[in-house]
Nucleic acid binder design. Structure first.
Lengths: 217, 217
DNA sequence: CTGCATCCACTTTGATACTG
DNA sequence: CAGTATCAAAGTGGATGCAG
């Protein structure tokens, strides 16, 4: 059951042995946002074969990255969650996402955007220096996806669903039916005013500043 | 010749499509340190099949990550180097290496340590806040590997070979013949004084401080 | 319905041999 | 030196089956 090692005593090689296989990091990406059931992962990862998902989950569990929890009382089912080690992958995920987003061309026909991808983009684009000592919260609605970004004293938390407390500003992006609601698309909509706002509207500029990577970098 | 896409318009997915295949990031790792010829990569990546190396190099070139240069006058041969896009992968490489190094157990029999792995470890472990406004240079000798670390006003440059200018301190680590000269091994040797020094010996503590990830993190 | 396991065609990888 | 050619083994994608 052991994948071929690289035979190097090296952090990068080890990382690739553990999460370098196809689909592995995308599974971790979805679990970073929140724990998920098997079928949620399956539908969220549009296109992953079920046997590959099962295999990866076993390998990731074996590696101590994912934990298989049997949900207790109400729903009772299997829930997959990241361990502390798994959560430790987030900086690497964000770094890869930042680089990859510079390599994104035009969306191909058939491409989809997952809610988790949007949350990851938000985190990847966060500019800590722009948010120093800031406290503010936003809720973003785009098609049927709702996500939130809360900055407390410069610290960011994001996730899917409504904000945990009433957000300072709610942004609803309007999209044409045939338009892909990508992160860039959302930011363009915000820039061009193609949004409905509710709350402290002056926080729209702050949003743009805090979640846009400056040109120079 | 196109590898199956993930079908997601997402930075992470794109990154994995471009450099997610086996051996790809290890090739990039070696090229980050310096351009290499085909055979240097082959021997440096102990264990990579030659057809896989050839395939990866073509894919990476296609992706605009690697550049194939025909060396000019004296040696004339093929040299592979990273493009600007390829160099942009370094933060992601370092983040993965940092995580992976927390997942390194004991070295397996047969494991090797590549010089490039050591250089990457040095960069991955660099603590910018500990080096603020610092200027110092070290040359590290370990077995037959020589590498250098130069900090100029808080900015780090590292590489293989002797330091570009006379280093402030030269550290030569002593290792038993059967001991693996890993980064951890080197740092232990430094801590335990199992080193020969030449130069400003008080820079040994600085070295440890600047290139050791603190416990808390 | 959820959470997989099995089967099969196809692709990628590893190991080795060989060539301009 | 810088690869290509060949072939077996392993991994992946897609469809389907099935128990709790």
């Amino acid at each position: 059951m052991k994948r071929r090692d690289f035979g190097q005593y090296c952090g990068l090689a080890r990382a690739l042995e553990l999460v370098g296989e196809r689909w592995a990091l995308l599974i971790v990406r979805n679990l970073v946002v929140r724990p998920r059931r098997y079928t949620e992962l399956q539908t969220g990862l549009a296109g992953i074969p079920t046997n590959v998902l099962a295999t990866r989950l076993k390998e990731l569990e074996q590696a101590g990255i994912v934990e298989r929890q049997v949900a207790p009382a109400p729903q009772r089912g299997v829930v997959y969650a990241l361990t502390a080690a798994g959560r430790g992958l987030e900086p690497a995920l964000l770094a890869l996402a930042r680089w990859g987003s510079t390599q994104l061309g035009e969306p191909q026909p058939g491409d989809v955007i997952s809610p988790e991808g949007l949350v990851l983009s938000l985190r990847a684009r966060f500019q800590p220096d722009q948010a120093a000592a800031l406290s503010a919260s936003w809720e973003i609605h785009v098609r049927d996806v709702v996500m939130h970004a809360v900055i407390t004293d410069g610290e960011l938390t994001t996730g899917l669903g409504a904000a945990p407390v009433k957000p300072d500003l709610t942004i609803t992006a309007r999209f044409a039916d045939d338009e892909l609601a990508s992160y860039r698309g959302i930011m363009s909509a915000v820039r061009d005013g193609l949004v409905d706002l509710s709350g402290r509207k002056q926080l729209l500029d702050t949003f743009l500043r805090v979640f846009t990577v400056p040109r120079a970098a």
